[in-house]
Amino acid sequence: MAKFRVVHYINQFFAQVGGEEKADHRPESREGFVGPGMAFNAAFGDKAEIVGTVICGDSYFNENLETATKEVLGLISSFKPDLVIAGPAFNAGRYGMACGTVAAAVERELDIPAITGMYKENPGVDSFKKDIYIIETKNSAAGMRDAVKVMAPFALKLAAGEEIGASVEEGYIPNGIRVNFFEEKRGSERAVDMLLAKLAGKPFTTEFPMPDFDRVEPKPAIVDISKATIALVTSGGIVPKGNPDRIESSSASKYGKYDIEGVFDLTESTYETAHGGYDPVYANLDADRVLPVDILREYEKDGKIGKLHRYFYSTTGNGTAVASAKAYAAAIGKELVADGVDAVILTST
C-alpha cells in the first residue's frame, strides 16, 4: 500500500525561523519535514510520510485570521495530502488557536482528516474540541516525544478510516461524543476506587461530567384563552390503536401526527401507548389519562378555550436522545406555528 501523504503545520518558533520577534512571519511551505516533523516522520515508519510543511507566524495568523487561513489552506492543498497534523501547540495560546483553526478548516473545506495536540488548558481546546480531535499533551515542548507517540498512531488510524475508540483509549480531549469501550476493571470496583480517592481527598476523574442544559426565554402569556387554539403534544407515546407509525417503545426515531377531528374521548379500543418506560395498563385502558382530549373537548364546547387543534403529536420520551427530541420539537413547532396554533399543552409521563 502506498504511504499516506502528510502535511505538517507548525509555527515560526518550531520551524526555527525565530521567536516572538518573528511572530509576524507570513505563510510559507517547504518540502518534507521541518523541526518536530522529523519525530513524526520516524514514528510513521513505512505507513506515512511528511511530504510538506506549512509554516506561519502566530501573530500573523491570529491577526489576519481569514486571509491567513485561506493562504495556509492553499499551501496545504498544493501537496495533495491524505492527512494533516497541526502542532502540537502545548500551552501556547495563539499557536493553539492557529492549529485548531487550520485543522478544522482542513476537515471542513478540504475534507481531509486533520488532528492537533494541545495542553488541556490551551484556549484552543474549548474553541475546537468539538470540531476536531485534539490529542492531550503536556504543557511545554518537553512533552514532544510523548505527544508524537500518541498523535502519530492516532493520525494513521484516522487516515485509514478505522473506528475511533473512546477518548481515554485514544488520548484525545473529550469532545462531547460518548463512545463505549471496555474498561480494565468492572464498574463496581471502579466505584470503590473512586470513593476511596474522594474520601482521602486525592484526585479522581468522574467518568461522566454533569451536563449543561440549555434555557429558553419564556413566551408572553396568552391574552384571551377563550379565543386560543390549543394543541396537545405528548412524550407519553399515545398513538391510535395498533401504533400505525410503529413508534419505538424506547429511543424513538420519530414522532407521530394524528388527526382527532370528531374524536371526543380516547377509549381502550381506539388508542393506546407505545411507551415502554412505564406500566402501560392505565394508559391503554383510558389514554385521556395521558392526553386529555375528553376534557379539552368539553372546554371547547363550553367556550373556555377557542379550539382544540385538529392534530396531536406524540413520541416516546423513554430513552430518547435529547438531540432527537430537539429535532422533533423543531419540526412540530414549525407546523404548529404554520397552522396558527396559539398554545401547546405538553404532557409527559
Binding site: 383510558d286 385521556d288 389519562r289 375528553d294 376534557i295
Partner: peptide, 26 residues
C-alpha cells in the same frame, strides 16, 4: 403512568382531577 388521571377513582372523579389540572395549565 397516569399524569392526568387516577385509576383508583371512578371516572367522574378522575375527570374532575383532569379538569383541575387543565385549569392550572390554562
Amino acid at each position: 403512568p397516569h399524569p392526568l388521571g387516577n385509576p383508583a377513582l371512578p371516572l367522574e372523579e378522575e375527570q374532575e382531577i383532569r379538569r383541575k389540572l387543565l385549569d392550572k395549565a390554562l
